[in-house]
Structure formats: structure tokens, C-alpha cells
Simulated scan of single mutants.
Amino acid sequence: MADTEFLVVGLGNPGQKYADTRHNVGFVIIDELARRWGSELSLEKWNARSCRISRWGSRINLVKPMTFMNLSGKAVAEFVRFYKVPVENIVVIHDDLDMNPGRLKLVRGGGAGGHNGIRSMTESLGSNNFYRLKVGIGRPGKGDVHPDFPVDKYVLSSMSGEEVDLVNERVTFIEDGLQFLITEGPARAMSLINSIK
């Protein structure tokens, strides 16, 4: 990847009410990456909280849009314009109902699959050619989750302690995958991340 400015965006909803919900797993991962990299998301501009870090020979902007999920793309588009970030240098971390809790999958492009945050990103950027790092949260009717649990309430309910521990374990793989993506390109990054079931 020739360009050295990257955006790593976690999707979620602002406010304490949503802080530890499944839909906010993107926020949780961004906060943990910032902590591991000795930073915090203290910059507040363009309806987002962010930090800009030099790592692996590149500049990485960790971003949490504060616009609520459905308008996430508007905040991200401001970063893209200001820092002139190519869309292929954007990684969006978000929850995925159709994967088991803790499963990871790195893809590029594709449809929103009913995820309003991804739909907003595609509309605001005028492209779907960014990377998506999907984090499985499971869905009602699978595993120990009762099938009558409404999906909208499920995604906005708090993660269990076991789920939180699982997400935190996955951050090490995500960090390694990001390093591969930035320094070597997508093939090795996808090979690692997509092996995490």
C-alpha cells in the first residue's frame, strides 16, 4: 500500500447507555487498540473522537464516530477529505450477527448486509471499496441465545463477561492483522484474521 495515511474506524453509538453493548464492539476494539498503543481518543472534531498515531511506518487515525450508527459515514468522510485518505486505506470494525461470537472476518467491499453503519459509510464515501473487519456477536436462536429475543434488543443489550473477555482476546489478532495489512497488503492479513473462528 503506497499511501501512508490510514483510518481504522470502530462503529458504535455514543453515550454510556450503549457503552458495553454488542452493537458497540467496534468502539470497544478501537479503545483497546489506543490503550495498547499508549494513546487515547482525546481529539474531538468532525463529530468523532480520534487519535493519530505513527506505527509501522504509517500514520494511523483511530476513529469513533459520535454521530450514532446510522450516520457514521458523515464523520468518517471528513477525515477522508482532510487527510486525503484513499478509500482502500480505510478499515471499518463492526459487529456481525451472522457470525459466532468472537469470530473475525476481514473483507473488502460487499453490501451492507442490513448494517446501517456500513450503509452510511458507503453512501458518504461514494464507494464500498474499504475494508470491513467483522466481529461476530451471534444472533438469537443460536448458541445459548433464546430464539424469541428480538434482534434489535439483542444487539443493544450488554455483552456478557465471557463475551467481553473473548473480544479482548481477539484484539491481539486484530492488531497483528492490521500490521500485515499496512506493511504487506491484504493477503496475509486476511489469512490470519479469517482463520479466527
Rank of each mutant, 00 (worst) to 15 (best):
E44H: 11
A2F: 09
M69K: 03
L97D: 14
D31V: 07
G117C: 10
V76Y: 01
T183E: 15
K134Q: 13
H146C: 08
K84W: 03
W46Q: 07
V145M: 14
N61K: 06
W56L: 07
I193Q: 04
N116T: 04
I182E: 05
S42K: 15
R108C: 14
L181V: 11
G117H: 02
G126D: 06
D165Q: 09
R36K: 12
L43Y: 06
L41I: 04
N128C: 01
F79A: 03
K153R: 15
V80N: 01
R55P: 15
N13S: 13
V63P: 00
K153Q: 13
G12H: 00
I196C: 13
P65S: 02
V25G: 01
N168S: 05
P140Y: 08
V145R: 14
S157C: 10
N168G: 01
S54K: 14
G109R: 07
F68K: 05
F173A: 14
G10R: 02
H94S: 15
T4C: 15
N89P: 06
S191F: 10
S72G: 02
G15N: 02
N70Y: 11
F130T: 00
G138R: 15
R103D: 11
V151E: 10
V164P: 01
M69L: 15
R55L: 14
N47W: 02
V85R: 03
A77R: 11
L178V: 11
A48F: 00
N13Q: 13
G73N: 02
A48Q: 00
